[in-house]
Nucleic acid binder design. Structure first.
Lengths: 191, 191
DNA sequence: GACGCATTGTACCGTTTGGTACAGTCGGGT
DNA sequence: ACCCGACTGTACCAAACGGTACAATGCGTC
């Protein structure tokens, strides 16, 4: 059979959902198999490195999505404010208003952190870095921009944790709106 | 042998560290045994409910610590500002300036969330609630106080995630200082 | 139509998992 | 001195874990 399985993008998306839902340790090969409809044979064919390669690929996939849909726009020199604005929209949409969790953030808290330390550090480092650059271009001093960026990304991550913890539908959007305001963007428009 | 093992408080603290470091799934009974110096016999003697009871007891233990050392002071009617101030000091100290992770926050992101949903919701709900009350008593409007409280607790949780992710020693304290300022406390004093 | 190879299902492996059973061991109370 | 019960180590269990081996399968290509 040539390619009955979903293509790599769809496959990674399905695997990602399992890791997101169960964590690295909790996501068993059996679970991943059930979620993707693939047997061990296929799974280990696509990811000879096993579970660790799956998780690594999933992180890279997510990283790529943020690179293309968030960081790229933050890097765009012409209108930093638009890039930041778009970051909030993309973030709210990606995390489904807090109903979805940040897989990379979750991995950072688990034991799995050690396995993927460099990928995790890269992802968050670039997020904070690009946001800080955009804020600096928007008129903030370098130090203030850097601290604001840290504060904003932390607020987003914390809001995801909190939203999941208290199971409050509105909380993620509320924190997002506030963070939006903290970055000096007009508080009026809803995101 | 009567009570050669460490007393319950010390025992729970040791078990907590294992869960903190490895997550719920990652913390095996063998690991917990090694960390506490107790065999399975003793472990299951103290916690007949097994791993789930251990984790539940650990959460309750941590919850109790925050109740006594943070929430209590927030609830103190006479000087809300002092209570909030103390929350920041206690938080920075408890989380070892970001080198330690919030076990309850980590559990909220894992699959284990389902097992401990009510304890987790309680803990964060009370934190946000008491902080909001204190802020309201400090002069903020009810709605603003509630949103500020959510923002602050989210910032703390996110800073823990981020600090762990990027392995930056200064980041937790920086975010904490900023949050401190956001709550209308003097930005000058270092915490 | 036949060959080659990407893909697949299945059987199997050793290890580790959480948990149980139970016989011992000891210290405090009498 | 003795006994009760809190504590402990060890042996054991079935199930699940991640991973491997391999023969079958069928599509694309020539």
């Amino acid at each position: 059979m040539r390619r009955i399985a979903p293509d790599r993008d769809q496959l990674l998306a399905m695997v990602a959902e399992v890791f997101r839902e169960h964590g690295y340790e909790g996501a068993s090969i059996a679970l991943i198999g059930a979620a993707t409809g693939l047997g061990k044979g296929s799974l280990y064919h696509f990811f000879p490195g096993g579970k660790e390669e799956m998780a690594g690929a999933v992180i890279a996939h997510i990283d790529g999505w943020f690179e293309d849909n968030v960081f790229e726009r933050l890097r765009d020199g012409t209108d930093p404010r638009a890039g930041i604005e778009h970051m909030f929209e993309a973030t709210d949409s990606y995390f489904r208003s807090g109903r979805r969790v940040c897989l990379i953030g979750a991995f950072a808290l688990e034991e799995s952190r050690d396995l993927f330390a460099s990928q995790i550090r890269d992802y968050f480092g670039r997020w904070v870095g690009h946001l800080a650059d955009a804020l600096a271009r928007d008129g903030h001093g370098t130090t203030e921009a850097a601290e604001l960026a840290e504060e904003a990304v932390a607020a987003i991550q914390g809001a995801l944790t909190l939203a999941r913890a208290v199971d409050d539908a509105g909380m993620f959007s509320r924190v997002l709106r506030r963070t939006h305001m903290r970055l000096g963007l007009t508080g009026g428009d809803d995101i």
